[in-house]
Design a protein around this nucleic acid. Sequence first.
DNA 1: AATCTTATCTTTACACTGGCAAGATAGGTC
DNA 2: GACCTATCTTGCCAGTGTAAAGATAAGATT
Lengths: 194, 194
Amino acid sequence: MTERPYHHGDLHAALLLAAEAELAEKGIEGFSLRSVAKRAGVSHAAPAHHFGDAAGLLTALAAEGFRRFLAAQAAREAVAAKTPAAQMIAAGLGYVDFALARPALFRLIFSSDKPNFGDPALLEAADAAYAHLVTQVHAMGGTDADVAPVWAMAHGLADLLAAGRLQSMHGLTLAERDAAIAAMLARSFGGRAL
Amino acid sequence: MTERPYHHGDLHAALLLAAEAELAEKGIEGFSLRSVAKRAGVSHAAPAHHFGDAAGLLTALAAEGFRRFLAAQAAREAVAAKTPAAQMIAAGLGYVDFALARPALFRLIFSSDKPNFGDPALLEAADAAYAHLVTQVHAMGGTDADVAPVWAMAHGLADLLAAGRLQSMHGLTLAERDAAIAAMLARSFGGRAL
DNA sequence: AATCTTATCTTTACACTGGCAAGATAGGTC
DNA sequence: GACCTATCTTGCCAGTGTAAAGATAAGATT
């Protein structure tokens, strides 16, 4: 029987990990602060000291979510051709990858009121994601007016796919699905990406 | 003092109205069944008889939401030119109108796990909305492959605007905003709408 | 008309939730 | 060694969803 020490050591990080697992299993609407604490092997009131309240924990998790979100895009970009068009397509594919791999986290950062989006750390992470998108569009020779359609297309695809609502894309192989998404992203840029 | 009768008369409809108001005020994440009951002037357990549980009430509300969603599109179509292209653009504008006018209801039908989407009445309402979209695309001479990009563009714009995330469109007048959305929708159709 | 049946609504109770306050523990500082 | 502060636990409260049991009313049957 290994006695659990009174002080955890790195409860802050442990709680974030537990919260991510809890979110993935229960979804935003089933998320429970007490359950997260139990998962981390700690009393129900322990998280308060590190994150204040449930919103605080979800705010920190959302910031981490934005970083994962960017990482998913970077992963696609790393294996894509180093042309601006291919990089932008890759970012869009990563956008969708993230929504499908972590739907609850995706909803937390885009469709939830629980995190405090005025929090500086969260704002910074969100701004970084947005800045990346703008950079991609500019690299392709697009203007600020091209940002909205590209973003909307990627976001709409990601959100609908994560919700399981685009049944027309269900029977496709991964390669076919990627090709279809790439074509739609190119279309959102005005067809100038092909 | 008008004594409240033991039997409400039409509690089913009254609860739906109260639930819609509750949703609009508190959002999905602040939605409370007991608060809805209080709003309808009835005990907290009364809704159970009509809707089973909270999910049942939100399922019924989601079905109603889909009907409102279609009505918002129809409202735009009624005042638009009667060409297929103008009608499709109008539907997209109505899509966005709905998301901005009732963001919580929009999230309930597209980004929530609480309603039971296997419910026949909800399925029927959702299918009707999807069928309308397909009809629009076909009327323009589009194929089934054109449905996804048009839907994704409309949905992405609606979701991002409802979340207040497309700040680039904040300073626009209503007419300018509509024109920008129309241009993006046309783009999602491959530019063949202009 | 009297009784039975059924639907509707209330009351009560329970397990769970988030948040607060008070106490326990331990690590660091003077 | 004494103090201080951060960390964590325990105990508590109001609020939530849901189930069970009782109260009330309306309709049906006789």
